[in-house]
């Protein structure tokens, strides 16, 4: 036989494809990030030393990831008018003053597996995500992002999360120009051959 033995026609159809399956979210006090096709393995550390224990060759990167997460958290964490409201959601002793408001403490930071391939690290230390520890009755003892997204039991250190959970890498790929390819085509008719 001199031709392709088998083609899976279902993979070749375009118009009839169901499209991207809509992500279903289950509301349980907050909304869970369900993992889709773009899921990634993520690791959660409560402290720099926990991170360094797990990644013995990257203590500096752990510290860097922690500091970035903390800076993000202070910028984005929910702000409460009263300490007790904050403590209702995040637990007694886990909130503090922050510019005339009360915010929860950061309880940990999450790192995804390195998908960029830029460096040799297993984890993507450049994009850490700050997490709090939710104590609100409907989501008791769960990891929670600054925007209220829940990530599972506080006891868990490793989980699959959606790739969207991490912010886009900023600064490391700032596009400074576009359109440097494709000019010839406008003066000549076709490009394939």
């Amino acid at each position: 036989m001199k031709r392709t033995r088998r083609i899976d026609l279902s993979k070749m159809r375009k118009a009839a494809q169901p499209g991207n399956l809509a992500k279903v979210s289950i509301v349980l006090g907050g909304s869970y990030m369900l993992t889709g096709c773009d899921s990634t393995e993520a690791y959660i550390y409560r402290t720099i030393s926990e991170c360094a224990l797990d990644n013995p060759l990257q203590p500096t990167e752990c510290e860097f990831a922690y500091r970035n997460a903390l800076a993000d958290w202070q910028r984005t964490a929910p702000r409460y008018r009263s300490m007790s409201d904050c403590e209702y959601d995040f637990g007694y002793g886990d909130c503090r003053d922050h510019s005339n408001r009360y915010i929860p403490r950061m309880a940990g930071f999450m790192l995804s597996e390195n998908q960029q391939g830029d460096d040799d690290f297993d984890l993507d230390f450049k994009r850490s995500k700050a997490l709090g520890r939710s104590r609100t009755p409907s989501a008791y003892n769960k990891w929670v992002g600054a925007d209220g997204t829940l990530f599972g039991e506080y006891g868990r250190r490793k989980m699959k999360v959606s790739g969207d959970s991490f912010t886009r890498l900023k600064g490391s790929a700032r596009t400074i120009g576009r359109g440097g390819f494709g000019k010839t085509i406008s003066s000549r008719s076709s490009r394939g051959s």
Partner: peptide, 13 residues
């Protein structure tokens, strides 16, 4: 092709 960008680090984006 026309939308390809160049980053501050010299990568195509």
């Amino acid at each position: 092709v026309e939308d390809i960008g160049i980053s501050d680090k010299g990568r195509f984006t």
